[in-house]
Computed example of a mutant assay.
Amino acid sequence: MTTPEPRASQHPERRHSERRHPEARQPEARHPGRRRPPEQPPEPPLLTLHAAVVLVAAVLVGFTAGGLSHLGGVPAALAVLAGLGAAGGAVPVLRGLIR
C-alpha cells in the first residue's frame, strides 16, 4: 500500500517558492498570451490652468480693493464687501483678458 502524495497547498517547498516568486500566482505569468485590460486614462484636473490663474488674479484684485478701502477709512465690514465685489467683478473681465 502506498501513501498518498501531499496536496500542492500542503507541500512546504511549494508554499515557500510561491512566497519567493509572487509572479507565479499571477494569471499573466501562467498565460502569457492573455491581454491585460486597457489602462484607464488619468482623471482630468479639478481646475484648468486658465481657471486657476483667473481665480488667483481675482483674489488679488479683491484683496487690493478691500485693503485700500480699509486704509481709506472705510469700516472693515464695508471694506470686505468692497473686496468681494471687486473680486466678483474681476472674474469675467480677467476671463476675457487671459487666454
Rank of each mutant, 00 (worst) to 15 (best):
V54P: 03
R15S: 11
G85Q: 04
P42I: 01
I98G: 01
L71R: 14
R14Y: 14
E39S: 12
T48K: 01
L78T: 12
Q26A: 15
R25Y: 00
R25D: 10
L47N: 12
V56K: 01
A52G: 07
A52F: 08
P32M: 05
G73M: 02
A58V: 02
S9M: 03
A65K: 02
P4L: 08
R34V: 11
T3W: 03
E13F: 07
R7N: 04
A8M: 06
P22M: 05
G89T: 13
P38Q: 11
T2R: 07
A8N: 06
R30Y: 00
G83W: 08
A58T: 08
E23R: 10
P22D: 08
P37F: 06
G67L: 09
E43L: 13
E18S: 01
R25W: 00
Q40Y: 02
H70G: 05
R20C: 03
R35K: 14
P32G: 07
E39N: 10
A24I: 14
V80D: 02
L84V: 15
R34W: 14
E28T: 11
S69N: 11
G96K: 13
P41A: 15
V61Q: 01
H21I: 06
E23L: 12
A79I: 06
H70M: 05
P44Y: 01
L49N: 13
T3C: 02
V61C: 14
V74I: 15
A65P: 09
L94E: 04
H21F: 15
S17L: 15
G85H: 01
V61I: 15
P12A: 08
P6D: 03
V54C: 04
L68P: 00
Q40R: 15
R25S: 08
G67V: 01
E18V: 03
R30C: 00
R99V: 03
H50F: 06
G33F: 12
H16V: 04
M1V: 14
G88Y: 12
L46R: 15
A87H: 10
L94R: 03
P4R: 13
P4D: 09
P12D: 02
L81C: 01
V74T: 14
P32W: 05
G66V: 09
A79K: 07
T64S: 08
G88R: 05
G83F: 02
G89P: 02
L97F: 03
R99C: 00
L84H: 07
V91E: 04
G89K: 09
L60T: 12
P38N: 12
A90W: 08
L49Y: 02
V54N: 02
L97R: 04
G66D: 06
A24R: 15
A86W: 05
A57E: 03
P12I: 02
G88C: 10
H31E: 09
Q26Y: 02
A65F: 12
Q26W: 08
M1C: 06
P42C: 01
R20P: 00
E13W: 09
A51S: 10
Q10H: 09
V91C: 05
H21L: 12
G33T: 08
R25I: 02
R19Q: 14
A8H: 04
E39Q: 14
R20Y: 01
S69R: 12
P42Q: 09
A76V: 13
L55E: 10
T3E: 09
G72K: 11
